[in-house]
């Protein structure tokens, strides 16, 4: 049984950028296991708290079906409605978009959904671990490229501490609480600290090692978008 470095105090120290926390985890006998354990606990814990928040928000709002009905009734009073309803094809197309919109948009705008909240208890830890491993591997490769001296075990251990800002998702237990995108920035800063500590890099090298994995993500996204566009064009071409 190895030495246990992880503690609530260490997590809070890492969250608030205390360099000692990163150094301590780097010097642990198995930073990877400590990091994995911490990520799963944080992600599952905050997902559970958010689920309770979703539940509270859900019972304090009128049912989505009732809202949908009021809006449909209002749309039917619009000047263009009778023209549209008279055209069978246009009406059919409207109904399809209407139903699709109500499936997509409420979730997109953060409408409380206990089912989604419950699913997150499983999805969030999985997504966190996957994101951590992918980023960790890429960042390790770039850090080594910049003459970093850390091991993969140390890179993964310290970059796991970049998930400490996720603790704020736990405030989701308060209904209608929104965190927004700031945690992504905070996580980026923690990742920089982690790579600098694990690989003893200069600030410039640590900066590039932190940023380049995001560049890879962006390139992959562009590539996926391009492939999807080509596929769509091909499918549409065949249909003609």
């Amino acid at each position: 049984m190895g030495h246990r470095t992880l503690s609530l105090n260490l997590v809070l120290q890492a969250l608030f950028l205390d360099g000692e926390a990163y150094d301590q985890l780097r010097d642990d006998d198995n930073p990877f296991i400590e990091g994995l354990f911490m990520i799963v606990i944080i992600a599952a814990g905050v997902a559970l708290l958010s689920f309770l928040g979703h539940l509270l928000a859900w019972i304090s709002m009128p049912p989505m079906e009732a809202i949908k009905e009021v809006i449909l009734r209002t749309l039917q009073q619009m000047p263009w409605w009778s023209d549209m309803a008279g055209n069978a094809q246009a009406y059919e197309s409207f109904l399809q978009s209407w139903d699709m919109g109500w499936r997509v948009f409420p979730a997109l705008f953060g409408a409380p959904d206990p089912l989604r909240g419950a699913a997150n208890i499983i999805v969030m830890p999985l997504a966190a671990v996957l994101g951590w491993l992918v980023y960790g591997l890429l960042a390790h490769a770039f850090a080594r490229l910049f003459k970093g001296v850390g091991t993969l075990n140390q890179t993964l251990g310290t970059t796991a501490l970049a998930y400490t800002p996720w603790l704020f998702y736990g405030l989701g237990i308060i209904p209608f609480f929104v965190v927004g995108g700031v945690l992504g920035t905070w996580q980026l800063i923690c990742r920089y600290k982690a790579l600098r500590s694990a690989h003893h890099l200069s600030w410039g090298s640590a900066f590039w090692a932190t940023l380049l994995p995001y560049v890879v993500y962006a390139l992959l996204l562009v590539l996926a978008g391009g492939v999807a566009a080509v596929l769509v064009v091909m499918v549409m071409g065949r249909q003609r």
């Binding site: 509270l56 928000a57 304090s60 405030l171 308060i174 209904p175 209608f176 609480f177 929104v178």
Partner: peptide, 8 residues
């Protein structure tokens, strides 16, 4: 609750 969540 909505007001409180929005404020926080």
């Amino acid at each position: 609750l909505q007001a409180f969540g929005g404020w926080l």
